[in-house]
Design a protein around this nucleic acid. Structure first.
Lengths: 224, 224
DNA sequence: CCAAAAGTGTTATGTTTACACCCATGT
DNA sequence: ACATGGGTGTAAACATAACACTTTTGG
């Protein structure tokens, strides 16, 4: 490779996180409001420029932490965007990630050095976003549906285990379908993706529900 | 983004193509022998450095054409590798693509400005490769299996249509399983991924076989 | 003892597997 | 006419879908 050829270098990269949650049955995505140019004051996915001495995943986690304080979130790369003019400043790749968090267990920073605000938006009601994030959030929503049926992206969402009725609602919210309770339970159990923990979770005035966890190995079986 | 920060730029990218074919039932991958440093004289996947004024896919196709003369091949990005030191010269992303061609319909250039040789290697017998291509070819083989069961990557392999017995052998070769002829036909037909062309293909001394084509829309249904 | 949600079983329906015979062609 | 591989149908096994009752808890 002729390193003196300027065509071979002078590139940079963004990392762009679509962080989802489920809030009372509504699927929501985390957005931040930018302070800096370009696209100052606009809402955007949790994103930023990557350093050339870190890995892509490290950059994604760093940006997420810097702009929202979220840590230890499982992120999965789902796409690379590379329109030549997608950034007005420099040729920038966009590495897109997806993650899912429990809204009740996280506390989002409202303002940071580079952001004015941060909030959860229902995926049916997303404001106009900076860069090419309008397109990216749409493909992330599609990918979320795909991931939930073939892999257990939900493992990260329920690190301490989950009950089957809980996760049932999550599937219904994301896929926008309704699934028979009893058949859902049977399918999930027979998939061998989850296992019983011998613990139960109590809900007020209701029969306690068994707590399950995702097994380590993912078999990549299509569920729905 | 503070453009004067050197951490934000000075990156480059490789495009790395795993081109597969099926030669008399054996799955093979296309390798080239490098002329230039680094890794001069070593075998490698069909790859090269991307220009900062082209898209990633354009770069992948350009490299494929420059080093093998192959054109109009359908390429799909399957992975991004980003170890910080994967290239000794510069921070380089590696964008990995997969493609599949019909060995009887292509003619590979043996030598180019940047390559000494090019050849097809059975995937069970691959020489030591340049860069991190040993790892990449392994994940490409796994991805090939995955793609063949969920999408019709074979569409590009059979642009003029195929017969069911032909494609049946391809599935068996790649997945290394045996599938009942009659059930294979039924599953593929009922998947609605393919349609009859009302043409037939003659084989010497055998009953002519119907020619099918893949439909445009891919439904992403898991077949096996 | 009542309401609310968790947990279980059974039958019907659809899908996949296993398997055997007939058909069109070139020699 | 026969050898070779293409094309079709059917019954058994298995998986999925539809559906109703019992259990545990807090109030």
């Amino acid at each position: 490779m002729e390193l003196n050829n300027p065509l071979y270098k002078n590139m940079g990269a963004h990392v762009i996180n679509s962080i989802f949650t489920i809030d009372h049955g509504i699927v929501k995505v985390l957005l931040i409001r930018r302070k800096n140019e370009p696209y100052s004051k606009m809402w955007a996915l949790v994103s930023g420029a990557m350093y050339n001495n870190e890995t892509i995943l490290t950059a994604a986690k760093r940006e997420l932490k810097e702009k929202t304080s979220l840590q230890n979130i499982n992120l999965e790369m789902i796409d690379v965007v590379d329109d030549i003019n997608r950034s007005p400043l420099l040729r920038m790749f966009g590495f897109c990630f997806i993650g899912i968090v429990d809204i009740d267990k996280v506390n989002i920073l409202k303002e940071t050095k580079k952001t004015y605000d941060a909030d959860w938006f229902p995926i049916d009601n997303i404001p106009n976003l900076a860069y090419d994030h309008n397109r990216i959030i749409l493909s992330s929503i599609e990918k979320l549906k795909e991931l939930i049926t073939t892999s257990s992206i939900l493992k990260a969402f329920y690190p301490n285990g989950f009950t089957i009725p809980e996760i049932h609602k999550v599937y219904e919210s994301i896929l926008k379908i309704s699934i028979d309770r009893r058949n859902f339970r049977k399918k999930l159990l027979s998939s061998e993706l989850i296992e019983d923990t011998n613990h139960t979770k109590n809900f007020l005035g209701k029969k306690p529900a068994k707590i399950y966890v995702f097994k380590e190995k993912t078999k990549n079986k299509q569920l729905f």
